[in-house]
């Protein structure tokens, strides 16, 4: 399922130039025309943007936990720590502790409610949750945060369905941090 560098199709070769591109790219390389449009999109959605790094990782880890994606939770636990979240905060996002213990900023608390409503439920979103979010976040932020939830859910199902392997160094770091 995952293509090695020697098997990389022509359009995928640049992604292997720096070494192992990771399992998401190595899987998408099977369909090169999808890879070449997906990677810029995923980069724009999940990479540096108007939404700060810490906030993005809050969204990604929480969404991945709600979706039960082992690959994304483990991979982004490490990224979240690098982004400055504490172990306690990450534990909350992973559903291992209550939010009240860590996230005191109203802006982040309403965001967690929004993530839980969008990623954890089905059908329409409760209007009071949306209204609360919009009191703390401006329109373009609401749109981007929601897009990040959606992109993360897509990757959650992709990674889970294809049983993408977590990098050894990630597993080692998780063990060292007591978050395996």
């Amino acid at each position: 399922m995952l293509l090695a560098a020697s098997e990389a199709p022509l359009l995928a070769r640049p992604h292997y130039a720096g070494g192992d591109p990771g399992p998401i790219v190595a899987a998408l390389a099977q369909v090169p025309e999808l890879l070449v449009v997906a990677t810029p999109f995923l980069g724009a959605a999940l990479g540096p943007s108007a939404i700060d790094w810490r906030t993005k990782e809050i969204v990604i880890v929480r969404t991945s936990a709600l979706a039960g994606c082992r690959y994304c939770v483990q991979s982004h636990t490490v990224v979240a720590l690098d982004a400055g979240l504490t172990k306690a905060e990450v534990s909350v996002l992973r559903g291992e502790a209550a939010a009240e213990n860590c996230f005191s900023a109203p802006r982040e608390r309403v965001l967690l409610h929004w993530i839980d409503a969008v990623a954890g439920g089905a059908g329409p979103i409760d209007a009071t949750v949306r209204a609360a979010l919009r009191r703390h976040w401006v329109d373009h932020e609401v749109v981007e945060l929601t897009a990040v939830i959606g992109v993360t859910l897509m990757l959650n199902r992709f990674a889970t369905a294809l049983e993408l392997p977590v990098a050894t160094q990630t597993l080692d770091r998780l063990a060292a941090e007591g978050l395996a």
């Binding site: 098997e7 990389a8 025309e33």
Partner: peptide, 10 residues
């Protein structure tokens, strides 16, 4: 199948 010279699946 070798994929090193694959362009697109489409």
């Amino acid at each position: 199948l070798d994929t090193d010279l694959l362009i697109t699946r489409t």
